[in-house]
Amino acid sequence: MGNAALGEMVRPRPAVEERLTRPQRLVRQLSDLDSGRLRRLIRSGDLAPCFDADDDERAVECPICFYFYPSLNRSKCCSKGICTECFLQLMPSKASRAVHCPFCKTATYAVEYRGARPSSESTLQQEEIQNINEAKTRIRSKTQKTGET
């Protein structure tokens, strides 16, 4: 805590299992992947662990691979979620140029890991899904009524 500014709390990072510091579902082999650096970034909390896919109702879906995870990295430009393995595959090799954000097309793409989603965000997402489902039901019933007349 000696390096923390006055009044700033340093939250302890939970220990990450060794197996969660290694990518498990890469679509393409990353020839220039620095495993040691990746392990350090995950253990320091700068990148989300390479979680196992999850089917828990609180899990969030990665919009790239469509697997569900306990939590995701967030893009710094638009706060969209992405799993670590998809992020690794989007990042350029040393020989290629910078990558644009796959969501908002910002020129320089970077992510941060904020840990698990707060329950308030999860509740808002569930309410949004419920509202969408109710709207679909209303539209279907209106369509059926107009088809009967």
Rank of each mutant, 00 (worst) to 15 (best):
Q144G: 09
E134V: 15
D56P: 08
I139V: 15
S120T: 15
F87A: 05
A116N: 07
S35L: 14
T108Q: 10
K105M: 03
G7A: 09
D56L: 11
E134T: 15
R22W: 01
T108R: 13
A53F: 03
I64R: 07
R13D: 02
A15F: 10
A135P: 11
A98M: 14
A59E: 02
V60Q: 03
R19C: 01
F87H: 11
E127G: 11
T84E: 00
T106W: 00
A5H: 02
S44Q: 10
L20V: 01
M9I: 09
C77F: 00
F68E: 05
N133Q: 15
I64V: 15
I82M: 01
I129T: 12
R138T: 11
Y109G: 00
I64N: 01
F51S: 04
D52K: 08
F51K: 04
L88N: 08
E85W: 11
E85D: 09
R37M: 06
K105A: 04
S119V: 14
K142G: 05
E61C: 11
V60N: 00
C77S: 14
I132E: 09
N131W: 09
S93W: 07
E121W: 05
V16W: 02
R19I: 07
T137P: 02
D54S: 15
S44F: 07
Q125N: 13
N3R: 11
I82G: 01
I139W: 06
L47P: 00
K76L: 03
I42P: 01
R37Y: 04
E61S: 12
F87K: 08
L72R: 02
K80D: 02
C62A: 01
A15K: 14
Q126C: 12
A5N: 08
K142H: 08
P102G: 04
R39L: 05
A95E: 15
C62V: 00
S44T: 12
K80E: 07
R114F: 03
T108E: 10
L20T: 02
T84W: 01
L90Y: 13
C83Y: 03
K136F: 13
R40C: 03
E61G: 06
M1E: 10
S122G: 07
F66Y: 11
R25E: 04
R117T: 05
D54W: 03
E134D: 15
V10W: 02
F51H: 13
V27L: 12
C65M: 07
S122Q: 15
D46C: 12
R114S: 06
A4C: 06
C77D: 07
F51W: 14
N131Q: 15
T137M: 14
C77P: 05
D52S: 05
S79G: 01
T137V: 11
E8K: 12
A116I: 08
C86E: 03
D34V: 04
